[in-house]
């Protein structure tokens, strides 16, 4: 769609109005703010899929032994490990960026220098925690 497109909308008191349509995402140059925001949604969706795995694991723990063995085999397979690694990274990112969001909800960190700094900190913390958890995990496994 071109930047000048308009679409019909309603005002809060019910009148029909024409509103300009904002340019689509591809038009904009990626910035740390927009990229991290998209990543928050993307990791959230990935974690939603991961929630299915969590329920499947709980069901396997409570289920018959062959069910649990199959689950353990799947999680230990290359695909299982890859899923678990992605899930760890998504959780770490969504966790730290979620805390950043809660800070914004309290009115903190809205200055440009601040949200750039906290954004970089979130990425660094997520990467660090992901690697740390996997180093500990692979030692314990």
């Amino acid at each position: 769609m071109a930047a000048g497109d308009r679409r019909a909308g309603l005002t809060s008191d019910g009148r029909l109005i024409e509103r300009p349509l904002s340019p689509h995402l591809q038009i904009y140059r990626p910035q740390i703010t927009s990229v991290l925001s998209i990543m928050h949604r993307f990791t959230g969706l990935a974690l939603a899929v991961g929630a299915i795995l969590l329920v499947a694991w709980l069901a396997a723990v409570a289920g018959p032994p062959e069910h649990y063995r199959a689950m353990a085999r799947f999680l230990g397979s290359p695909i299982g490990l890859l899923l678990l690694f992605g899930w760890t990274a998504a959780l770490a990112y969504h966790f730290f960026n979620g805390i950043r969001h809660l800070g914004w909800d309290l009115g903190l960190g809205f200055e440009r220098a601040e949200y750039h700094k906290t954004g970089k900190a979130v990425v660094a913390a997520a990467a660090g925690v992901t690697v740390l958890l996997w180093v500990i995990g692979l030692i314990l496994w």
Binding site: A51, L54, V55, A59, A62
Partner: peptide, 12 residues
Amino acid sequence: LFLRGALAILRL
């Protein structure tokens, strides 16, 4: 999904 997970936890 919630009920399936909850059932597993309650069973345990």
